[in-house]
Amino acid sequence: MIVAEQKPIDEIKEMAAPYRKLLVLGCGTCVQTCFAGGEEEVATLVSTLRLAAKVDGRDIEVEGLTVERQCEDEFIQEAAESIARNEAVLSLACGAGVQAIARRFYHTPILPGVNTTFIGVLEKQGLFTEECLGCGNCELATFNGICPIARCAKKLLNGPCGGSRDGKCEINPETDCAWQLIYDRSKALGKLDNLKAYRPARSWQASSAGGPRRLVREDHII
């Protein structure tokens, strides 16, 4: 999923300050799963903003709504009426959702309420970890199911650096060394040979380095 984290309340208040009618718009997919921008977070944020306005003596109307997915037009339409009666939208969706709303509602200011962080998983309760960089050319078969591009701090594809110690990454003792994981799993699978061959320099053309990406599906074009 796309993992996001709600922005600090002070930053949200500052962004929202110029508006007297605000819609807090949640998204029911990724950001709901990672507790950053789903129905519950919308309800909490609406109350917090109302309360804060009251304390500051400001007259402000805050409305809340959550749609299934802010990145899809079909669901965005459900928010059209609410958006029309507000001055601005505070979107709790990922960066893609925020921009999809901005594209659809050209004359309404759209504010981001979360920081989109990474494509990851819930490793355990309360801990999300990054697993994928969306590099555009998946090599997980070679690395036996663990991605060094997303999970090695130096994106090393030819083995661990000299800072791998006791299974941890040198830059953060809380972070697993991706190469220790790759080595252990490859050994368990009897596939260490994958890691012995020299890997030539990688092409980053399919990644964001090649500029904003477009995916054309001829078979879906009407």
Binding site: N158, W179, Y183, L192
Partner: peptide, 23 residues
């Protein structure tokens, strides 16, 4: 090139040395 025999995983350190020579 450099080599760190003291880093982990230990058994991979020699594989890595071999790869550096090959490279």
């Amino acid at each position: 090139a450099v080599a760190n025999p003291f880093a982990d995983p230990f058994e991979y350190r020699v594989i890595r040395l071999a790869k550096k020579i090959e490279a």
